[in-house]
């Protein structure tokens, strides 16, 4: 019987695989999707950029503006459907954090119309018309949001729209820590 043990190996491999799949499914349930690319920008200073304003009565955005207080940089576009879904949550968030928006590869007039329709929760609004600043941040789809600490370092990246769970589970605790 001793030399029969390798016959059990496929069974063992089967259960190891099942365990692995269950583990991944649980992680996916918690929002860790396999198509999300881990950001290399976390804990690095925000990239150098200077973008023109979208509106006449609101400033644009540059790297220097991200110093001194915790800021949430939100990349969005009027052509982006998930951004519309995310918008009410961002409006609520704007009461807790300095929220600034970067309009990613969009026509300015379309972005202005979008904000006029849905409301404008942003403290500053900048245009990234060629998407270059987006690439410098590591954006690969909109919406994406970056939480920047008081020293101008990226501390958190949200790929895709915020969900209420993301906000209560990840963003709010991190905000409390960074605002200390």
């Amino acid at each position: 019987m001793m030399r029969r043990w390798p016959l059990l190996l496929p069974v063992l491999v089967f259960f190891v695989l099942v365990g692995f799949f269950i583990w991944r499914l649980v992680l996916m349930g918690q929002g860790d999707m396999p198509n999300m690319i881990p950001s290399v920008m976390i804990d690095k200073p925000a990239p150098d950029f200077e973008l023109p304003p979208l509106l006449l009565n609101k400033p644009g955005l540059k790297t220097g503006d991200l110093q001194g207080r915790v800021t949430l940089v939100n990349f969005f576009a009027s052509w982006c459907v998930p951004c519309r879904v995310e918008h009410p949550l961002l409006s609520q968030l704007a009461e807790r954090v300095n929220l600034v928006g970067i309009v990613y590869k969009d026509k300015p007039e379309a972005a202005r119309a979008w904000l006029a329709q849905l409301g404008d929760p942003y403290q500053a609004l900048a245009q990234d018309s060629d998407g270059h600043t987006g690439i410098d941040f590591g954006v690969y789809g909109v919406p994406e949001s970056y939480l920047i600490d008081k020293h101008g370092r990226i501390r958190y990246k949200q790929v895709g729209p915020f969900t209420p769970e993301d906000i209560s589970g990840k963003l709010v605790p991190l905000l409390a820590e960074l605002n200390k």
Partner: peptide, 8 residues
């Protein structure tokens, strides 16, 4: 590009 998007 690796600096922005990682080895991925």
């Amino acid at each position: 590009l690796v600096d922005r998007y990682g080895d991925y």
